[in-house]
Amino acid sequence: MTERLSVRKTYKLFIGGAFPRSESGRSYVVTSAKGEFLANASKASRKDARDAVVAARKAFGGWSGATAYNRGQVIYRIAEMLESRRAQFAAELVAADGVAAKKAAELLDAAVDRLVWYAGWSDKIGAIRGSANPVAGPYFNLSSTEPTGVVAVVAPPTGPLLGLVSVIAPVIVTGNTCVVVASERAPLPSITLSEVLATSDLPGGVVNILTGGSEEIAPWLAGHMDVNGIDLTGAAPDLAKTCEELAAENLKRVLRPPADKIDWLADPGTARMTAFLETKTVWHPIGV
């Protein structure tokens, strides 16, 4: 009897709810923590980043205009879909990160819980960040939160699933759309996550995931005039500096990489959500 040949997969990008190949036609080999072949992944170019920004901008109106309740429901749905793919994610975490099966299960639980936690924040963030301001005049003065717009996210190279979920969810829960540069070394959890996103109720273009080199793609996103914010969590110090300089041109909101190693299992707090929020203040006359 002949031995069965395994299918050697080549994964694609996730842009505008579809799975296109890289415009450049390039791909690269993804290996496990032990150096064994896992799959091929697309190596995104600057033009893929440009297309992803166009897709994110197109999705922004609908997503930011949806009710907070609705956004929360969609993110909860992502958690449900993630839960139903436990086995696949667990296997990928073991292969990619070299963690033990028990630890992988713990990280997976944390990722699902993190999504549910952020889903709950969708209609509550306004309560802690908005306010009714006392003013010396016959006006109601109300401040409310508004999403920043299109946010570029450089995903952390470690903690491929929990880290990824922990940077994407806070950006989109408040109504932003995003372009994510996935971890170059361990992109498989992000690719599988994009399959989860495509089959949950998330509108196409709200999350776009690019695999490939962050040194190559991130500066183009940082300099892009139609990107309103950039999260540099996964950028190395040199790259972060370059990106921050490029981001100054159109006054992007920048979230700098943390000085210390992040413990993704710790309580994230609200900082990641408020980093990409604007405040809108309305003066409204009292009476009649």
């Binding site: 440009r50 920004v53 901008r57 300099g223 005039m225 139609d226 990107v227 041109e249």
Partner: peptide, 9 residues
Amino acid sequence: TGRYSGPDY
């Protein structure tokens, strides 16, 4: 300019 522009401009 060497940087992508956007419809805002």
